[in-house]
């Protein structure tokens, strides 16, 4: 058996970076992503920060938000990072699935994947593609956190030192929190013929699995817990006292490993017609 070749994995990963930074469609995607986030920073985030930190009614608003479960979030030292974290948790999962939905589904349909598989193992190809998307998304997370810190520094220059600690925690948390979404998309790419179907099936999974759990629990008194397979659930329990709680990251890591294992296994067994 030929040894696993990490160099090939790296080459496939780097080629995906080229897709983003060199091809026209990749650059357009990147431009749209940052354009939307600049708007989010400029309006919702800045307005929210002013409301909870600067305005005359800040105390009342903080008290109201605390009552509905955001007390810890309001204690975080840099308000911009708190609001960014909240916005990211709402917006990034769908963004992540949208950007990573077609990791190789269309390549499979087009037959392009066969050109790769004449030269590398199926798992090398699959992991290479996953790492390409995961590393690209990590870079996006880093950029967003840096932009948030710049916004915070412009408003309050003294916030930079405390912001760096909170910012690095936020970056690590968001990156690991988002990776299972990419792994889930990778897994669905093995099964489905297009990125569009990957998005639709992901949405369906988020509708069907909780319903299944509910029905099993209420009608059959069985605790199925199928929602454990869904990335991103239970996000509000991850709010620590001074930033996102990094000890809550075991579950997303396990989900990532499980999806990648399943992807490799099924892709290895599947015929490429």
């Amino acid at each position: 058996m030929k040894a696993y070749d990490f160099k090939k994995v790296l080459q496939i990963c780097l080629h995906e970076w080229q897709r983003v930074f060199v091809t026209g469609s990749g650059r357009l995607t990147l431009l749209t992503f940052f354009g939307v986030w600049v708007l989010i920073f400029h309006y919702p985030v800045r307005t929210a920060v002013e409301l909870i930190s600067v305005s005359g009614d800040a105390g009342i608003i903080r008290s109201m938000l605390g009552d509905i479960g955001f007390r810890q979030l309001l204690q975080w030292p840099v308000a911009e990072l708190s609001v960014f974290w909240f916005a990211a948790m709402l917006l990034l999962p769908l963004t992540c699935i949208s950007l990573c939905c077609d990791q190789f589904a269309s390549d499979r349909q087009r037959g392009t994947v066969k050109f790769y598989l004449l030269r590398c193992r199926r798992s090398e190809f699959l992991i290479g593609r996953f790492l390409g998307y995961a590393s690209f998304f990590t870079l996006l997370m880093l950029s967003l956190v840096i932009i948030t810190l710049v916004y915070a520094w412009v408003r309050e220059p003294s916030s930079l030192s405390s912001g760096i600690r909170q910012g690095s925690d936020t970056f690590i948390f968001l990156t690991i929190w988002m990776v299972p979404f990419i792994a889930l998309a990778n897994f669905l790419n093995v099964l489905l013929p297009s990125g569009k179907k990957v998005i639709l099936v992901t949405i369906l999974l988020y509708l069907l699995l909780p319903t299944l759990d509910y029905l099993a629990a209420s009608k059959l008194q069985i605790n199925l817990q199928t929602t454990l397979a869904l990335p991103g659930l239970g996000v509000f329990s991850t709010m620590g006292d001074t930033g996102p709680s990094l000890d809550q990251l075991t579950r997303p890591l396990l989900q990532t490993v499980s999806y990648l294992f399943l992807s490799s296994l099924i892709f290895k067994l599947r015929s490429l017609g």
Partner: peptide
């Protein structure tokens, strides 16, 4: 050692 011309397989249109 082995290579192939695969019928109907197409190149990636992005690159």
């Amino acid at each position: 050692k082995l290579s192939a011309l695969i019928q109907d397989a197409e190149f990636d249109p992005d690159f």
